[in-house]
Design a protein around this nucleic acid. Structure first.
Length: 481
RNA sequence: GUUCCCAUCGUCUAGCGGUUAGGACGCGGCCCUCUCAAGGCUGAAACAGGGGUUCAAUUCCCCUUGGGAGCACCA
């Protein structure tokens, strides 16, 4: 029976609507795979008007940390995945889990196993040597409890059926069948009396009225085992959906070696949450030929039927392209705010002066065309941050040789004669180039190098005008000879 | 080893028995152009292999091969 106290938190739960959950274990950051699992759960809940719960699986006291919990919550918040009701902490429910184990024990669906760790290791070793499948051999399954050694610690194991088969009806993979004799008697309660994950998920999902268990495909095998517990308790089974895993660009398992696994790392690399949602969604899910799928559309369209079955690889080039799209799509004001916040998050924080923000705002329309990430946006905007002559980067230094400096010097009077509007500046430069038998580009590149310190920038004459006559001339004169 | 899952361009994918096998990223070319982008046009690029089923297989079935996951008193 569900405990009353637990259900109180979910008064908003509509019994007729789906209930989904994301259930990470707080042993590390929210990584990209977890983020996608959370996203798919969230999308389906929002699509159906159902409920999306967050449960922290912290039954492993050794490895669970408060820092990891915070990281997961932050990651979810950044991704824009809001959950309904309060966060549920699994460890707090250990009493209830034990209660279920007791019930199982009482009704004969579970038994005490007194095998020691060394004993089990030997057993597995022998099985491996003999080339046999490695699994618990059921040595205490049918023993008379009277044989139990007194005062020895024991675990509680499920007395699983070993005939017939268990079928996982999967929303994504279809029916997956497991012969019951392949599944051994899993531990429900450890020798210290704490519940294992296998027991805890089943009990919590039932108590939380979860209707759809959607998680990584690494749990597919577990589904069969969990179904056995559910069957033993006579509970209704949830619908399952196992998402294919995400691999690294090389097709191998996504690991630290590929870098940047935590969702926060993507934030720090300058990706927008909307980009991450769109990218992760398309990694394994499709809607015809659609590529650009804003979150609102995703909610409208999402369904498990269109989830692919095969594992996908991360493609950073495509991520960049998508991010560039969403950066261009973002309003100039919002981007200034994003970039400002991004720079302030840095260590050490970079606080932009008011003047720089003003310039940023004016230049943003041009700047954002050229950036795929906030990092690139920052780099492209650097020349706006402070006054005075620019330091030249390598390429700009190469351009501003003696000849170019002389040309720059000859160009200056022509510019000074204008009203410093972009249009006037450009036509002055054009006619000067024509008179000198040069192309506009020949005249423009030295100007650009001196003005920005780089060979790449937003349109030159716009930038001259934006920086103003005074500031521009200071920068240009510094390199005119 | 064993159980389970998967298999269309380099990558993400559309396809749900009959298609010139489509789109996107990336790559090449052209156009635009003060640089770089953005944008437009365009090119190269795929049904892992072998058996069946069928008038007809990318599509359905089997095998092989290749990837991946699970096999703990972790989750």
């Amino acid at each position: 029976m569900p405990t009353a106290s637990l259900l109180e938190g979910f008064t908003m739960t509509d019994k007729a609507k789906p209930v989904l959950r994301f259930a990470p274990s707080p042993t590390g950051m929210l990584h990209i795979g977890g983020a996608r699992t959370a996203l798919f759960n969230w999308l389906y809940a929002r699509h159906t008007g159902g409920t999306f719960l967050l449960r922290i699986e912290d039954t492993d006291r050794e490895r669970s940390t408060p820092e990891a919990v915070a990281a997961i919550l932050n990651g979810m918040a950044w991704m824009g995945l809001n959950w309904d009701g309060d966060v549920i902490y699994q460890f707090a429910r250990a009493g209830r889990h034990r209660e279920v184990a007791e019930t199982l024990l009482k009704q004969g669906s579970a038994y005490r196993c007194y095998a020691t760790a060394e004993e089990l290791n030997q057993m597995r070793e022998a099985q491996r040597k003999a080339g046999k499948p490695v699994r618990y051999d059921g040595r205490w399954r049918d023993r008379d409890p009277k044989d139990a050694p007194v005062g020895t610690p024991f675990v509680v194991r499920l007395k699983a059926r070993n005939d017939g088969e268990t079928v996982v009806h999967d929303l994504i993979l279809g029916d997956v069948r497991f012969a019951n004799d392949q599944l051994d008697d899993m531990v429900l309660l450890r020798s210290d009396g704490t519940p294992t994950y296998m027991l805890a998920v089943v009990v919590d999902d039932f108590d939380m009225s979860v209707t759809h268990v959607v998680r990584g495909a690494d749990h597919l095998n577990n589904a069969a085992r969990q179904l056995q517990i559910i069957e033993a308790m006579g509970w209704p089974a949830p619908a399952y959906g196992h998402l294919p895993l995400i691999n690294g660009p090389d097709g191998q398992k996504l690991s630290k070696r590929h870098g940047a696994l935590a969702v926060e790392a993507y934030r720090d690399m300058g990706y927008l949450p909307e980009t991450m949602r769109n990218y992760l969604l398309r990694l394994g899910w499709s809607h015809g030929d659609d590529e650009i799928i804003p979150t609102a559309k995703a909610i409208e369209w999402f369904d498990f039927g269109a989830v692919g079955k095969s594992p996908a690889r991360m493609d950073y080039k495509k991520l960049d392209n998508l991010n560039g799209h969403y950066i261009r799509e973002t309003s100039d004001d919002d981007l200034v705010a994003e970039l400002t916040a991004f720079l302030e998050r840095r260590s050490p924080p970079h606080i932009l002066p008011m003047m720089a923000r003003e310039r940023l705002k004016s230049a943003m329309a041009s700047l954002k065309e050229r950036a795929k990430t906030l990092v690139q946006l920052d780099q492209g905007a650097e020349f706006l941050y402070a006054d005075g002559p620019r330091d030249l980067d390598a390429a700009a230094g190469k351009i501003l040789g003696p000849e170019a400096r002389a040309l720059l010097a000859r160009t200056l009077p022509k510019l000074e004669a204008t009203d410093w509007s972009a249009m006037d500046l450009e036509s002055a430069a054009r006619s000067f180039a024509e008179e000198s038998g040069l192309k506009l580009g020949d005249v423009a590149q030295p100007l650009r190098a001196a003005l920005t310190g780089k060979t790449v920038s937003p349109p030159l004459f716009e930038m001259l005008s934006l920086l103003g006559r005074e500031e521009s001339l200071i920068r240009l004169r510094a390199y005119a000879a």
